Computed example of a mutant assay.
Amino acid sequence: MKEIDDNLLTEFLEGKLDEPANREIENWYDTSEENRRRLEALYFVLFAGDRLRAAASVNTDQSFRSLQRRIELRRTKTRPQWRQIAARYAAILVAGVIVAGMYLYQNRPDDRICTVSAERSDCSVTLPDGSVIRLTRSSQLNYPASFDDGNRTVHLTGEAFFEVSKRNGAPFTVTTVHDAEVVVRGTKFNLKAYDDSSDVETVLVEGAVDFRAADHVVALHPGQKVSYNPTDNDLTLQTVNVEAELAARLRTFRHVDLAQIAGVIEDFYGIGVAFRSEALKNIQFTGTLDFNMPIDHILEVLTLSTNTRFNRNGEKITIHK
């Protein structure tokens, strides 16, 4: 019989031997308790070491699935008694790999960015720190998959209501278009920050926030609303009826082309807007539109303010003089 050393045992465990050699190893395994312990220990050390080294450089889920396939394949190639031993050590091995994989996974930096979009209806999302954000339709939120490094910064395009969980020494920051941002420390507030030329607005319900834009820094108190126009770099602060502000879907525009507002209407109501002439697209509108109202009301306000008219044919709107 060929001398059985660790190299031969390793080839057996890796399934590289032919059937006669496999039977010799199995017979050798049955002859003594010392032989059984030797093969079992090599099995654990060989494959546990292999999996732990791989876990640091590959996807841990994929590694675990690969390990399971290898164990199952090895079971089918050996006789019943060996399958029982392999199963016992496989359980130890799998537990070790899972613990090590979780440690490596949880302690590596996670720089993934998650995106939630509310395209046709409102939706809610709970962030890793427990903060809850309710997105208004046609809005989008980007946030890191993990806040473990203390970085609680998210980016909003559109409108959302924030209920921010408190964390000592870890402020929560919402960045927006036009370089406007809101810094909070555990509070409830509503923020509008669309990527068109409408005003960026924040209404504070409770707690405290700092609103920052360009050279402006304003500390808000509950019941206050700040409006910032990026085109004019103009900022206003006022006391408002919070319930009324949250119930309405008001959008304030200042000197915005009709073509751009038409795009907002199309996105929100899902209805096409066309112009009889190119010149009409450049007419500017200044005013506030309530997107809780029917589209005909929006168009009435828009056309009366710009001395234009509109025709509606089903799902198609045409603006003309």
Rank of each mutant, 00 (worst) to 15 (best):
S57Y: 11
S57C: 01
V58H: 11
T60V: 14
T60Y: 07
D61R: 06
Q62T: 15
Q62L: 14
S63I: 11
S63T: 09
S66M: 03
R69V: 11
R69Q: 13
R70F: 11
I71V: 13
R75A: 10
T76G: 10
K77P: 00
K77G: 12
K77W: 00
W82C: 07
W82A: 12
I85W: 10
A87Y: 14
Y89I: 04
A90M: 01
I92R: 15
A95V: 09
G96K: 00
V97W: 04
V97Y: 01
I98G: 09
V99N: 07
M102N: 10
L104P: 04
L104V: 07
Q106W: 13
D110K: 03
I113E: 08
I113Y: 05
V116W: 02
A118D: 12
A118W: 12
A118Y: 11
S121T: 03
C123Y: 00
T126A: 04
L127I: 03
P128V: 03
D129S: 02
D129N: 00
G130N: 07
V132E: 14
R134A: 08
R134P: 00
R134T: 12
R134Q: 10
R137D: 04
R137T: 02
Q140W: 00
L141K: 01
L141P: 03
N142L: 13
Y143E: 07
Y143Q: 07
A145E: 15
A145F: 00
D148S: 12
D149S: 15
R152I: 02
V154D: 07
V154S: 07
L156Y: 10
L156M: 09
L156T: 04
A160L: 05
A160Y: 03
F161G: 01
F161A: 08
F162H: 08
R167C: 05
A170P: 00
P171W: 07
P171C: 04
T175D: 09
T176W: 07
T176Y: 06
H178Q: 13
H178C: 05
D179L: 05
A180G: 03
V182S: 01
V183R: 15
R185G: 11
R185L: 13
G186H: 06
G186F: 04
T187H: 05
T187P: 10
K188A: 14
K188R: 15
F189P: 06
N190Q: 14
L191A: 00
K192D: 13
Y194R: 01
Y194K: 02
D195C: 02
D195P: 06
D195V: 02
D195E: 13
D196C: 05
S197Y: 13
D199M: 11
D199G: 01
D199H: 10
D199P: 01
L204I: 10
L204C: 05
